[in-house]
Design a protein around this nucleic acid. Structure first.
Lengths: 353, 353
DNA sequence: TAGCCGGGCTAAGCCGATTTAGCACCCGTC
DNA sequence: GACGGGTGCTAAATCGGCTTAGCCCGGCTA
């Protein structure tokens, strides 16, 4: 510890040249500025011998960039899914030579302010404002100082020019319904929302769009949802209750769409307790592709939230915006980028008997 | 975008004073250096009016600190548990005025090198080297440049002076066995390792210590493990297989310790398929306290990995080391810090009939 | 022999702060 | 009226790198 870092000045004096010369050589402009091969060689050797690494902080101070991004999310820990999003962001950032500051707000606007300030104080080149479940949200001030992007969230005021990256929930909703129709099902139940267009937990983009996609596709086939079960908490207990009641009322032979995998887990438990089986007696389709989905028996067929891709895409767009160096503000053409939700077929859907 | 940041010079010229004066006033040394109240007032007003915020990068360049820590882990995403560890680290860092760079190595030493370099290049004040499951690991070079700490990992060479923070697995192992003994059980089975002292998946500290604690406590009661099931992958499928076979051989009335919650999940499935119940026919105790554990019916009794506390403790120790400012190296007395694993009693253990 | 050109390198300023050393002024004193 | 001693503020150096402008020297031309 405490061994001081090697600076450019150290390299220069070791090579017997000025700092300027050392800088030119090491930044590859040696030939351009006609430094003799002998000297270049000497500088490079000294640099290697001392293990010189440029101080990025200093460079950043000079040219006003830090090769650093801020990633502010409302929650990292509660959702196991979030990790993938961060991972996608981290990998992409690294690939472009950026490091990421991570911050968590717990949904507290005051804390969010503090984190943003702390990041801006550290001269981040851009900000990713992430949400762990898709929702609309107000924008904090200060985002006009640097390029910014919304991840898994939409701006509450649509007047803003900040781009957003979200999963393509609408298309996934359509596909979920179509999957059941293709398997011959005509009695489709929804757990988590519905049956009406507006029966949706407040503030969730996912709920609204998935429901809309499902209803749209059913309508196109001349059908309506057989039942719906609006719930503000999409937890296993709720899935169990809804399914328990649903089976009592309708009996076997149903197709169920659960709005996330935890609801599906509860549905499985209720189906099992009713001495019925998935998918023989009841078909289940879900959303999210939580790790849980592949542990269930049989595996749960579900539309994955493309967390990794979302994180990647957000950082890509941000880096692009930064690369433009603030010169042309109009680099970002499309304000909302939708990332498709891939289907994981695992065996919880069967052809209607 | 692109509205340039307000600098100290801006404040100074707005207040009609020198940069020196502005700096002194804003850093609270105004009285000490006899700046008149009038001028102090003017500076403060100018600062507030312009919304001045000091550039931490610049300050860092001057005094050689960045108020920034690096957090390098092998994996963030795969384990939902990891999030809590990072969260604990983030919160604690913030509380001490630090921001965190997060990096993920995927277990690749080359990538780890690059990440460490990228962080050191950005002048981090300290490094947390984290592992998502407890293990021994070699130390990369360069950790002698700044204070560092191992999180959920132990140094392979015990000669090092780098402190480590790990869960107290041994004590938890003892407590798990004791819990079953107290419930009157005498036939205790282990899934994931055992029955012998050395029947442990290679490289896992958790496996070794949990097994040792379990065996030790059973021995003290004059017992041995009734059976063990060594497995290198602690996944639901394995738990199902082991439990399925175990029930065929031993019948109901057993007590099972699974070495993690995914194994327990598989055990539940096997027990359910054998038309037996938890905890009436079989008691189950586990480790980790994954989210899954509270979703199971009945809830799983398990010893929680204290991820949040681990993250917190690691950063606390690191900040302490940094606070000492490299002056006295011997601030860290104890090299290995053990964090206790709390029991979550949920109802998967019953008194022996 | 003066002037010009180009090769090969360096001095000095800058980024945004902190900090040390010290300047200019006023008042009182001998 | 020179000197001493506060008072109230500022110039300049520093951190570590980049960058512009320009220096010095030798050879060639007029």
């Amino acid at each position: 510890m405490g061994r001081k870092r090697v600076t450019l000045a150290d390299v220069a004096s070791a090579a017997g040249v000025s700092g300027t010369t050392a800088s030119l050589v090491l930044s590859g402009r040696g030939d351009e500025l006609r430094i003799s091969p002998t000297v270049q060689q000497r500088v490079r050797e000294a640099s290697a011998a001392l293990g010189y690494r440029p101080n990025i902080v200093s460079i950043g101070l000079r040219n006003g960039s830090s090769r650093t991004l801020g990633f502010v999310s409302d929650t990292v820990a509660t959702s196991q899914l979030a990790g993938d999003m961060i991972k996608g962001a981290l990998e992409t950032a690294r690939a472009h030579g950026f490091m990421l500051f991570i911050g968590e707000t717990e949904g507290d606007p005051e804390l969010e302010r503090q984190l943003l300030d702390a990041m801006l104080d550290r001269q981040v080149d851009g900000i990713v404002l992430a949400s762990m479940f898709t929702r609309t949200r107000p924008l904090p001030s200060g985002l006009d100082q640097v390029p910014a992007i919304l991840l898994n969230a939409l701006p509450e005021q649509r007047t803003t020019s900040i781009p957003a990256v979200i999963p393509d929930e609408l298309t996934a909703g359509r596909a979920a319904a179509q999957l059941l129709l293709d398997a011959g099902h005509r009695s489709v139940h929804l757990v988590g929302a519905g049956p009406g267009e507006h029966d949706v937990p407040p503030g969730t983009v996912a709920g609204v769009e998935r429901l809309a996609g499902i209803r749209e596709t059913l309508h196109a086939a001349g059908l309506e949802l057989a039942s719906g079960h609006l719930a503000s908490e999409w937890e296993p207990r709720v899935g169990w209750e809804a399914t328990h009641r649903l089976l009592e009322e309708w009996g076997p032979g149903q197709a169920i769409i659960t709005l996330n995998d935890r609801l599906a887990f509860g549905a499985y438990q209720a189906i099992q307790e009713a001495r019925l089986t998935v998918p023989g007696d009841v078909s289940v389709v879900s959303f999210d592709d939580a790790p849980l989905a592949q542990w269930l028996r049989p595996g749960l067929t579900t539309f994955a939230i493309p967390h990794h891709d979302l994180g990647r895409r957000a950082v890509e767009l941000l880096v692009e915006q930064i690369g433009a160096d603030g010169a042309t503000t109009g680099t970002s053409s499309e304000p909302v980028h939708r990332v498709s939700m891939p289907l994981r077929e695992r065996g919880s859907v069967a052809q209607r008997r």
